[in-house]
Amino acid sequence: MANTIIGSSIVIDGEISGDEDLVIQGTVKGRISLKESLYVESSGIVEADIDTQNVEIAGRVTGNIVASDKVELKADCRVIGDIKSPRILIADGAAFKGNVDMDIKD
């Protein structure tokens, strides 16, 4: 399913873009833009602005998140930044600080 994996000892400082799922177990700083799903696993550390279709976060994310479909903050994740997405799920145990925008049009 997920073709791209950033391993736990990998550090990327820069920009990641692409059309497929991305799993982050390591550290990414900079910017991530995908047309598919981003999975930040529990060992993953992201200090980047994120622009994807789906985001699932179990690790740490610092940065603004824009998702066209869904953002899911799992238990024990730690997220600092603004989230903009039509669907946002925050699980029990998740730590989050920032604004939430579900882009609701009245």
């Binding site: 997920a2 073709n3 791209t4 994996i5 950033i6 391993g7 736990s8 000892s9 990998i10 550090v11 990327i12 400082d13 820069g14 920009e15 990641i16 873009s17 692409g18 059309d19 497929e20 799922d21 991305l22 799993v23 177990q25 390591g26 900079g30 696993e41 529990s42 060992s43 179990a58």
Partner: peptide, 27 residues
């Protein structure tokens, strides 16, 4: 979790065919 996932993915970091990484990559 990390260890399990790494074993699942053969302990490899993979940059898939449609992915572009620009910047510094270390590990």
């Amino acid at each position: 979790m990390a260890v399990k996932n790494q074993s699942m993915f053969s302990n490899n970091t993979v940059v898939g065919p449609s992915i572009l990484i620009s910047g510094r990559l270390s590990g």
